[in-house]
């Protein structure tokens, strides 16, 4: 018997499969109910995501684009931005933007956010 098969058999015993005749189904259910599991099965697969640093920026309502604070350039104009995978970023963005009737919008306050991006936003490689 291979090690793999042994492991599988071991698991099947642990799971209390009635098909193997090790436990009665009702008995197994009672045993399961007695211990209330904490956490999620998915939690076993948690791993670090892709994290990138995105320079300070804000959404420019005039251009309808997300722009870099320092240059006013659309971040999308930079190369190699998307990875197709879920990405997290440490983003400094404007949290209090003034839109005066005359004159350029002015950011009065910044904050650092942790954002998640389904398209793997990844500027400026």
């Amino acid at each position: 018997m291979t090690e793999d098969m042994k492991t599988r058999r071991r698991f099947l015993r642990q799971a209390g499969l009635a098909a193997l005749g090790v436990f009665a189904v009702a008995g197994a259910r009672r045993a399961a109910a007695a211990s209330d599991p904490k956490g999620l099965f998915a939690g076993q697969f948690l791993e670090d995501g892709h994290v990138v640093n995105i320079p300070a920026g804000h959404y420019d309502r005039e251009q309808m684009l997300f722009v870099e604070e320092a240059t006013g350039r659309p971040m999308v104009a930079q190369s190699q931005q998307m990875t197709g995978s879920w990405t997290y970023s440490d983003t400094t963005r404007c949290t209090n933007m003034f839109y005066p009737n005359n004159g350029a919008p002015t950011c009065a306050a910044y904050d650092s956010d942790q954002d998640s991006h389904p398209d793997g936003f990844k500027p400026g490689e």
Binding site: T7, R8, R10, F11, Q14, A15, A32, S35, P37, K38, G39, L40, F41, A42, G43, Q44, F45
Partner: peptide
Amino acid sequence: GADHLARADLLRNA
């Protein structure tokens, strides 16, 4: 893997 299966009871939560 087998180690993950050993925690199959966690499927009771989701």
